[in-house]
Design a protein around this nucleic acid. Sequence first.
DNA 1: CATGGGATTGACT
DNA 2: GTCAATCCCATGC
Length: 194
Amino acid sequence: MTALAQALPAAFYDRPVLDVSRDLIGCVVSCGGSAGVIVETEAYHHSEPACHAFVGLTPRTGVLFGPPGRAYVYRSYGIHACLNAVSEREGVGAAVLIRALEPISGIEPMRERRGLERLESLCSGPGKLTQALGITLDHNGSSLSKGPVLISEPPPSWREFSVTAGPRVGITKAAELPWRFCIAGNRFLSRPAR
DNA sequence: CATGGGATTGACT
DNA sequence: GTCAATCCCATGC
């Protein structure tokens, strides 16, 4: 394990979701004795139809409209869990989808939870990284500052990289918005940046 | 209460 | 390239 870094405060997420989405690149997600650096994110905002919050306040979207800095975890295609960081002022309805991590510690537990060996396959997708870190729907609504899922500032060796923006992956509505952010050329992206 | 659609992944042609 | 798995929940009757 690397030295414990400072978890980002809730105020970090209380900003425009595009800023939070870009600034989360390089930060560290940790859970279940494993951790990885965020190399790919997507922003979602209630004002556009690809966002779950677009339909308004329902039992499903309650966390999205809650205070910033909490985890919104939803089930995708009946099989996978996807991790989001709720952003913007309470009541707005916005979040950042964490799409890919570069594993940095607790690699063996990740391999066990994923049932795979290949490093590049452990966290290179939103459903993969939650499985690798042991993140489940039970974490929905939990604080990303207090855990058990934590997001911390970038490690010292991760302060220099270039972030590119492009269209989001796998959506049918508002697909033209360039709200996906990645580290250009990183080997651990869910798919290459365009 | 019945229906349908995913912010995906992995296996297969 | 195609496609099924599988379940939560929004929507409509």
